[in-house]
Write a protein that binds this DNA or RNA. Sequence first.
DNA 1: CCCGGTTACGCTTGTCGTAAAGATT
DNA 2: AATCTTTACGACAAGCGTAACCGGG
Lengths: 281, 281
Amino acid sequence: MDPHLLRTFVAVARLASFSAAARELGYTQSAVSQHIAALESDLRTELLTRRPVAPTPAGERLLEHAGPLLLRLEAARADVLRLAAAPPGRVTVATSPLAVGPRLLSALPATGVTLRVLPPAQVPAVVAAGECDLGLVDGLAAPSDPLRLPDVAPLRVTGIGEEELAVLIPAGHPLAGRAAVRLDDLADARWLDAPGIGLAPAVRTAPALHYDGTDLHALCALAAAGHGLALLPLPVARAAPAGVAVPLVSPRLVHRTELLAPGAPTGAALAVAARLTGGPS
Amino acid sequence: MDPHLLRTFVAVARLASFSAAARELGYTQSAVSQHIAALESDLRTELLTRRPVAPTPAGERLLEHAGPLLLRLEAARADVLRLAAAPPGRVTVATSPLAVGPRLLSALPATGVTLRVLPPAQVPAVVAAGECDLGLVDGLAAPSDPLRLPDVAPLRVTGIGEEELAVLIPAGHPLAGRAAVRLDDLADARWLDAPGIGLAPAVRTAPALHYDGTDLHALCALAAAGHGLALLPLPVARAAPAGVAVPLVSPRLVHRTELLAPGAPTGAALAVAARLTGGPS
DNA sequence: CCCGGTTACGCTTGTCGTAAAGATT
DNA sequence: AATCTTTACGACAAGCGTAACCGGG
């Protein structure tokens, strides 16, 4: 179960070829063959069928473990390395689109910060891997409940804000005049599915349209044009250039944003983190 | 970042001694020294102070990663090995005390099952490591919300039941006559803290008494005798030999129990899992 | 036949143990 | 002085590459 063997195993499984994996990893075909043979003899099981190359059931199972395992290993390495390196003045912050708000903007120092907007699902991994010093993620949660994040590595999580939710409804829609809606009212509605922005997965019904970008403006435009409803934080929905923001009152959910830090942040990152957690809302 | 190096690193840190770690791991002191040196040169950082042997800040950080990492690695190995081994007729089920109820008892086949009662926090690790084929955990959650479990490994989680909560109150207590209580009513109450059984950690106030066992009967006796209140599933509290069970109506929380399975359960474990998820409640 | 995975074999590298040296209390 | 870690060094095994081998399309 050497990580090197695991790494070539996932490469072979992904590429469905020993030789392609060898090229990708800078080994010879022979070495890759020996790696797989070593793994299989260690576990006393066939992990791959040859010709065609495909994982056996046991191989499938190992693949489920190997990915997170290698991710954590790399994250651990990067984390310690970053801690050891002299803290540079620059701070890079990974953030999901909806976490970019007045709070973040007022907490940023005048200079020396790089912002990296990513789909919420990728933020924890990027922070864990040490590519960014801090992370901001947002999502749906019951009031004052923490978010459910994948724990790729031990990260410090701090809640830094909660907001009401609203549904962005096109102007002509029958519900557009309501002062508030319940999710039940919208049981048959068609929702926009935007994994790059978040919030949508909470709704169970079949989505009307997939949007793969991270651009909030585009999502609002789609919603206002009637391509489907969008679930957004109330302030964001209010600020949309078109469409009507109707607060969602049931179930009691809020839009929550949290700060992720690898261990205790150091140096310049610490200052930003402090302003985010303790600073003005 | 070889797992072997990591393993000796945690051993050295835990024992605060190179030579003790060497004895424990079956190496010579020299080999341990070389392991640590290899890690430190790889990460280009001091991880331990010598004389006395203690982790540096970077070492502390690495320790946080190393534990879960090694656990997952071992879990992955055990999982694949177990899948590969011919499924024996015996099934072992790890369960937290409060998950043992009529549902489980009726789902068990007449023979071939070993039950292992553990504190809820240990159940996921035991299932992940393949020591048990199935796991049952219980805990507090908002209705129809999944439990928050540590993800030591990719486990299949299935909710199999939710119950109302109740507070077990000694007979003479002022609240004993109430038809229902809110958590606010009990803000100043003293709670029993029983991590081996669960549920207590949801309450924030300082506990009156720690109970480290997993025996439900003992906990009920303590509560009935006035040593502190106990938060229990309503049916369990009702069945207590003494004390009064008062339903908890606010906040809206339920006692939830979930089934953990490593990947898809196989053979005899599958049959038990099916009866637990689909069987009579 | 050709493509691709396996096996054989030599070489390099890494890893462990023994033993001597160095440091710290 | 005693204890514990480090360093030096030799033996052994592991891992990789070259090259020959085989099994399917």
